[in-house]
């Protein structure tokens, strides 16, 4: 291969590499700028989580969802979580479906897992399944932060969670099944702005 062809081919490859990066950014920007904002209530995280690092791991209040029948039966599977804004301002799960919804915009893609929940053991009777429950693995459960400030931020979040007068939640932009976490807030103030 002569030098000219080589340079042209490499320029092409470099352009593709850049294009992939631009596509990643474009997709995210589209969700953030044109999506709908939802607030997801947070749950305390075990402070001894060994995987803590440069990001804060978030646990959401609605980590599972009760259902009568189960569409997922083999481990984790991609599904669509339909949501609406509740009276308290927080997102509520309406249903979980395997097919992409066509009638609503208010859903996000997540990995779900179905658990069978058994009722109370009754005498002389085999244990019966009372209902099912979807365990949801949220696609936005990591909040990347500066490794210096993350310890302080986590302490604040935990303190706020212990205090029943304060509310802690993540703000997520949602559009066409895509979701992007934009901030973690304590009573409306993003944790990055807390000094």
């Amino acid at each position: 291969m002569n030098r000219k062809t080589l340079l042209i081919l490499f320029s092409l490859v470099a352009a593709i590499q850049l294009a992939v990066l631009i596509k990643m950014i474009w997709d995210s920007e589209r969700v953030i700028t044109t999506g709908t904002a939802y607030l997801f209530e947070l749950q305390p995280v075990d402070p001894n989580d060994p995987f803590r690092g440069k990001y804060m791991t978030l646990r959401f209040e609605q980590s599972d969802f009760k259902t009568d029948t189960c569409q997922v039966n083999t481990g984790y599977q991609d599904a669509f979580v339909l949501i609406k804004k509740g009276n308290d301002g927080f997102a509520k799960i309406l249903s979980i479906e395997l097919q992409q919804p066509t009638t609503t915009q208010d859903y996000f893609k997540a990995s779900v897992y179905c658990n069978a929940i058994y009722g109370k053991q009754q005498k002389d009777k085999p244990n019966q399944i009372s209902h099912y429950s979807y365990v949801i693995e949220y696609p936005f459960e990591r909040y990347f932060m500066n490794e210096k400030t993350i310890a302080i931020a986590e302490e604040r979040v935990r303190a706020a969670m212990r205090d029943s007068t304060q509310q802690v939640y993540g703000e997520v932009m949602i559009k066409d099944g895509q979701s992007r976490l934009t901030s973690v807030q304590i009573d409306g103030v993003p944790i990055d702005e807390l000094k």
Binding site: S28, I32, P139, F140, F144
Partner: peptide, 16 residues
């Protein structure tokens, strides 16, 4: 650098 740039974008948008 390809890996680094992709990681960076994931961090900016908190993409898991």
């Amino acid at each position: 650098a390809i890996g680094a740039s992709m990681t960076l974008v994931s961090q900016v948008y908190h993409i898991v």
